[in-house]
C-alpha cells in the first residue's frame, strides 16, 4: 500500500503534519493534481472542436474524448480536494538523482538523434558504453568498453544482419 490515508480533521489548505516526507508528498501530489486537471481541461477543449457524427444515432468522433476528459476532470478535482484536505497519497521521499537520471536519458536521446548520421548500431554501442559510467562499480572503463562492444555487436549482428532490421 503506497497510500496512507492520514486525513487530519480540521486541516484545510495545509499539508498534514507528519514530518518532511509528508510535506514533500503534499507538494508532489498538488503539482500532479494540477497537471492532471490541466491535461483533462486541454483535452476537453480540443474534443469540443471535433465535428459531430454524420450517421443517424452516431454520437460523433468527439463524444468519447469529451466524456473521458470530463470523467478525468472530475477525478482530478477529487484528487486535488483530497490532497488539499491533507490526505497523504504517497510519493517520493528521497530526492531524485537528477544528474544520473537526466544523464542516462540524455545519452539515449543523443543516440536517437545521431542515429541517422553514424548509424544506430554504432550509436547504441557508444551510448551504452558511456551510460555504464554513470553507475558505480569496479573497473568502470573495462565495463564500459565490454558493454559498448557487446551491444554494438548485438545491434549490428543480431538485429541488423540476422533479423534484417533496416537500422538507420
Amino acid at each position: 500500500m503506497t497510500n496512507q490515508a492520514s486525513a487530519v480533521p480540521g486541516s484545510n489548505l495545509s499539508p498534514a503534519p507528519g514530518g518532511e516526507a509528508t510535506r514533500k508528498h503534499f507538494w508532489q501530489n498538488l503539482v500532479a493534481a494540477c497537471i492532471a486537471i490541466a491535461w483533462n481541461a486541454g483535452f476537453l477543449f480540443m474534443s469540443l472542436g471535433l465535428p459531430a457524427g454524420h450517421s443517424r444515432g452516431d454520437v460523433g468522433p468527439g463524444s468519447l474524448p469529451m466524456q473521458v476528459s470530463v470523467f478525468g476532470l472530475v477525478v482530478s478535482v477529487v484528487y486535488l480536494v483530497q490532497v488539499l484536505r491533507g490526505i497523504d497519497f504517497g510519493g517520493s521521499s528521497e530526492k531524485i538523482d537528477v544528474a544520473r537520471v537526466a544523464g542516462l536519458l540524455g545519452i539515449f536521446v543523443a543516440v536517437a538523434l545521431s542515429a541517422n548520421w553514424i548509424g544506430l548500431a554504432l550509436c547504441l554501442g557508444i551510448g551504452t558504453g558511456v551510460a555504464t559510467l554513470l553507475f558505480p562499480g569496479e573497473r568502470p572503463l573495462v565495463r564500459a568498453l565490454a558493454t559498448g562492444a557487446g551491444f554494438w555487436l548485438i545491434a549490428w549482428g543480431l538485429f541488423g544482419k540476422l533479423l534484417e532490421l533496416p537500422l538507420p
Binding site: A36, F71, Y79, Q82
Partner: peptide, 8 residues
C-alpha cells in the same frame, strides 16, 4: 493504494 490515482 489509491483508486483515485488509478482512475486518473
Amino acid at each position: 493504494g489509491s483508486l483515485v490515482k488509478g482512475l486518473i
